[in-house]
């Protein structure tokens, strides 16, 4: 019995220790810092300032716009990723020739970094020689080029489009797995009752995979909210902070602070 305990503790200890010290501790420290007066690169004179930082943030129009953008960003990315992801999963459910290859193409975006995705879309959205403008011109959908990333009217929309593309794969993977777990006899029963394709989707498939849908959507909402990489690569919040979401806004502040601190340091040397 004692051996068992030693084995359990010994096996878990490295993982638990590392996660506690380097994941949870910095997180809670960061939360505490929200109530403190901290210059990150100058650790003297830390003091608690209560809700002052929050007051400052809520009075900052840039912070408020980032907050609003975060809501738009999460909502539209999530809805579109879900609808397209579900459609793809339904299409990929039945085996057909070349399905494996096709599946690979659908899912590969998942292996790319958000930052590089951002760069690739930045190139495609380019207002002068971007391929998206060119395609839209050729089809005749637009008459002159759009500054997708430089025009404040379009910028947030464009950033969300790139993010939708990036996240479809995740939804498709999760939903496909859920679809394949639906027992075949449920469909047989529905067939006997004379249910059509749409009825089967609404009354058999969707209710059965609802737990997966809810779990996936919640998880995804948190990830989309937290992840600034695509925005960082695409616009870094531009034009004039119009496309900042909360996470990219905070990141930008942090990097700016790092750069000025570095300058101060080198000036004093």
């Amino acid at each position: 019995m004692n051996n068992r305990r030693i084995f359990i503790i010994g096996s878990l200890l490295p993982a638990l220790l590392l996660v506690l010290v380097f994941t949870y501790y910095p997180f809670f420290r960061g939360v505490v810092m929200a109530f403190q007066n901290v210059q990150i690169f100058d650790m003297r004179n830390i003091e608690f300032v209560g809700l002052q930082n929050f007051e400052k943030a809520f009075n900052d129009p840039k912070f408020m716009s980032a907050l609003k953008n975060s809501a738009l960003w999460v909502f539209f990315s999530l809805v579109c990723q879900f609808v397209i992801g579900l459609t793809l999963a339904l299409l990929l459910r039945k085996p057909f020739r070349g399905r494996g290859v096709y599946q690979g193409f659908v899912f590969y975006s998942w292996a790319l970094s958000g930052f590089l995705i951002g760069l690739i879309w930045k190139w495609m959205f380019n207002s002068q020689i971007g391929v998206i403008n060119d395609l839209l011109l050729r089809i005749g959908l637009i008459e002159e080029r759009i500054g997708f990333l430089s025009d404040p009217k379009w910028a947030m929309f464009s950033v969300i489009v790139a993010n939708i593309w990036y996240g479809i794969a995740f939804f498709a993977i999760m939903l496909l797995a859920a679809l394949q777990s639906v027992p075949a006899d449920l469909y047989e029963a529905a067939d006997i009752d004379g249910a059509g394709g749409v009825r089967k989707l609404l009354n058999v498939t969707l209710p059965y995979i609802m737990p997966t849908i809810i779990a996936t959507t919640l998880l995804r909402a948190i990830w989309i909210f937290n992840d600034p990489t695509i925005i960082y690569g695409l616009t870094n919040g531009g034009p004039a902070g119009r496309t900042h979401i909360l996470s990219s806004f905070m990141l930008d502040k942090l990097y700016t602070a790092a750069i000025t601190a570095g300058r101060r340091l080198s000036a004093s040397l």
Partner: peptide
């Protein structure tokens, strides 16, 4: 064993922490 569920939850929860909150304290560490 005792704490099994809490540990599992602790692992899951890390996936939902926003990285930008920890970034500055990690730098200091």
């Amino acid at each position: 064993f005792r704490g099994h569920g809490q540990i599992m939850l602790g692992f899951f929860a890390t996936q939902m922490l926003p990285g930008f909150i920890s970034l500055s304290s990690l730098y200091m560490m």
